[in-house]
């Protein structure tokens, strides 16, 4: 379970302090596929980075499985991050490494034995359907294949949680459906709790069971996908839902 309590984040720049997150309270239960939706600049990316502490919250606490991890540092922080997989909008694959070496990276930094690591990586490449491509380089793959590699990489350390930061925003609609299917499969079969950051209601509709709507650094609405879709409260939720209608 992930719990965010009274979370806030302020960025300081030359132009002054800028609030990216304000009073975020959120509970993500084990087994959820939890959507966090909002427009660009709403603070979603910052929020998800507070979970694995790539961003340090200015105020508030992050609890993971009941443990306050907000002030973790050094080894404990690195170990925590290893338990949380992450995938990115631009995939962020290591371009000078083969597909297999990309998936090996998280295991390499944990100093796992080479043979075990390779076995695990191959297992995962099989899971994402890229078994035959282990010796290729990312540049030789399509966008969808690259995101599959990055999913395999994110799962290397047997994480309990998977953070997806706009994971399908750079992909076409057909590829998006297959990647979302894969994420759903991982949630169901491996029991990985998934946090999905997106600006597209269609993504939430396709795979999430719960959703939080963000607007201007705050969470304005949260609930099951069914309840939020059938009875939206916030104005921004109406707008986001309207966009889905226009899509269809």
């Amino acid at each position: 379970m992930i719990e965010l309590r009274g979370l806030g984040k302020t960025f300081r720049s030359k132009s002054g302090a800028h609030g990216a997150l304000k009073d975020i309270n959120l509970v993500i239960d084990d087994g959820d596929i939890f959507g966090i939706i909002g427009l660009s600049g709403a603070g979603k990316s910052t929020l998800v980075r507070c979970i694995n502490l790539l961003e340090k919250p200015t105020v508030g606490q992050v609890f993971i499985d009941g443990v306050d991890v907000t002030d973790f540092s050094g080894r404990a922080l690195l170990d925590l991050r290893a338990r949380i997989g992450m995938i990115f909008q631009d995939f962020s694959l290591f371009s000078q490494r083969t597909v297999l070496q990309n998936v090996l990276f998280p295991l390499e930094v944990r100093h796992d034995s080479r043979a075990d690591a390779v076995r695990r990586a191959q297992e995962l490449l099989d899971l994402v359907g890229l078994k035959d491509m282990q010796d290729r380089y990312p540049a030789q793959l399509s966008g969808g294949q690259q995101q599959r590699v990055s999913i395999a990489r994110a799962l290397a350390n047997h994480p309990d949680y998977l953070l997806c930061d706009e994971a399908t925003s750079a992909l076409d609609s057909v590829t998006t459906i297959s990647i979302l299917g894969l994420i759903k499969q991982i949630n169901r079969e491996l029991g990985v709790t998934v946090i999905v950051i997106t600006h597209a209601m269609t993504v939430v509709e396709a795979i999430c069971n719960k959703v939080a709507v963000m607007d201007d650094s705050r969470i304005v609405e949260t609930g099951t996908v069914a309840s939020v879709f059938s009875a939206p409260q916030a104005a921004i939720t109406h707008e986001l839902l309207k966009a889905v209608g226009a899509d269809a």
Partner: peptide, 8 residues
């Protein structure tokens, strides 16, 4: 950032 996210 990906490297950091994997605990490097």
């Amino acid at each position: 950032e990906a490297g950091r996210a994997f605990g490097a």
